[in-house]
Computed example of a mutant assay.
Amino acid sequence: MKAVTCAITLAAAIATASTSIAYAQKKGLPPIVVGAVSSLTGPGASDASVQAAKIYFDSINEAGGIQGRHIEYRVIDDQMSPPQAAHAASELINDPRTVAIVGGSSALQCGINQERYAQANIFNLPGAGGDPACFSASHIAPLNTGPYVATATALTFAHQVLEHQRLCVVSPALPGMTEAFQKTARDWAKRTQVPEPSLDMYQLGESLQPIIERVTRRDCDAVIYTVPGGPAIEWVLSSRPAMPKVPVIMLTPAYTTQAAKALNAVGDDLYAMAEFDPWSSGSLQIMRWRQLLIAQNVETSALSQGGYLAARALVHALRGIQGPITRASVSAALSNMPPWRSGMMHQPFRVGTDGNRQLNRSALPMKLEAGKWRIAHTRWIRE
């Protein structure tokens, strides 16, 4: 009887959604246009974040949309190019229908576009922010912890939980990020009153052997590796012969099934910092997210979690708007939105521009064991 009831309920929901969308189309209600500037091509590119955001928006449309209007999602590739990133943002901003920019993943667009977002009073909620401006600009609020806070949580985990003393950080020498990683290491040492970790930078694409030799000579107790997933795999595979017993703590982009498979046979003490509830957990929120993504053949990863949560945060704000949904009303709703608990982040999230914003500043250590990522510590590490 229960199965029949569920089937009837599902059929009714589908019928209601179809009726709502048909009504909106019949009445000529315009779509709610949401944009994204994301690196879909170029070094370190991925479409996981925007795919997950789109899947969530599609589910909202199937349920009737917002105020009878469906969400139209426009994603523009910044190609990891500063001029293209500026052009993409301008294209979205200059379209008065665009109410917000949500769910993108880019290592450079925040710094390039932060001023024009503020001038246009439009909010950008990236699924994954990379450059330092993402975490300080007034109109940008990423859902992810980001590489700098995540590096600090990795250092805290290595020092306080694994009880290592000589800590080494290996980072990419990317424009605008070098100084941020230097500041992260310096501030962490000052805050914890321990010796400052060594920091070795290198250019992605160059031979790893010189930097492996340099880091090996430092006699590290643990290495924190801050580069995205693919290079992280390459680093571990290349450096393991020289440092077979040194723990390597990677950041969230390495917390993937691909990394688990690739690194399964190269030894113990491999970790990654999860910025959201582990995607392999059995919580109801994770199960709902996973079902949506698997149905569309999108990889379950931290990137797709970020895009999904960015879309959810926007919809949460949209549903609280009583009058017309416009750029101005959406920006006001996001700016004044009370702290929001997503069910997939350790802390409440708040966009606010009043100095009381609450971004994601926690990470949960994961350890690679027998080809699978498992929780390595019972508590979230917060910076």
Results as ranks from 00 to 15, higher is better:
Val4Phe: 13
Val4Lys: 09
Leu10Val: 06
Thr16His: 04
Ser20His: 10
Pro31Thr: 12
Ile32Asn: 03
Gly35Lys: 04
Ile55Glu: 02
Tyr56Arg: 03
Gln67Val: 03
Gly68Phe: 06
Val99Asn: 06
Ile101Asp: 10
Ile101Leu: 10
Leu108Lys: 00
Arg116Trp: 02
Ala120Arg: 04
Asn121Asp: 15
Phe123Gln: 02
Phe123Arg: 08
Asn124Gly: 12
Leu125Gly: 00
Ala133Cys: 11
Tyr148Met: 04
Ala150Ile: 08
Val169Ala: 13
Val170Thr: 14
Ser171Phe: 05
Gly176Ser: 02
Trp188Val: 14
Ala189Leu: 10
Gln193Ala: 13
Glu196Gln: 15
Ser198Trp: 11
Leu199Ile: 14
Leu204Asp: 02
Glu206Phe: 04
Glu206Tyr: 07
Gln209Val: 03
Asp219Ser: 15
Cys220Ile: 13
Thr226Gly: 02
Pro228Asn: 11
Gly229Lys: 04
Ser238Arg: 13
Pro241His: 05
Ala242Pro: 10
Pro244His: 12
Ala259Thr: 01
Ala259Trp: 01
Gly267Leu: 09
Leu270Thr: 06
Asp277His: 09
Asp277Ala: 14
Trp279Tyr: 15
Ser280Leu: 05
Ser283Ala: 07
Gln296His: 08
Val298Pro: 01
Tyr308His: 11
Ala311Gly: 01
Ala313Lys: 06
Arg327Trp: 07
Ser329Met: 07
Ser331Cys: 01
Gln347Asn: 12
Phe349Ser: 00
Asp354Ile: 03
Pro365Ile: 05
Gly371Asn: 08
Ile375His: 03
His377Thr: 07
Thr378Ile: 08
Ile381Pro: 06
Arg382Gln: 08
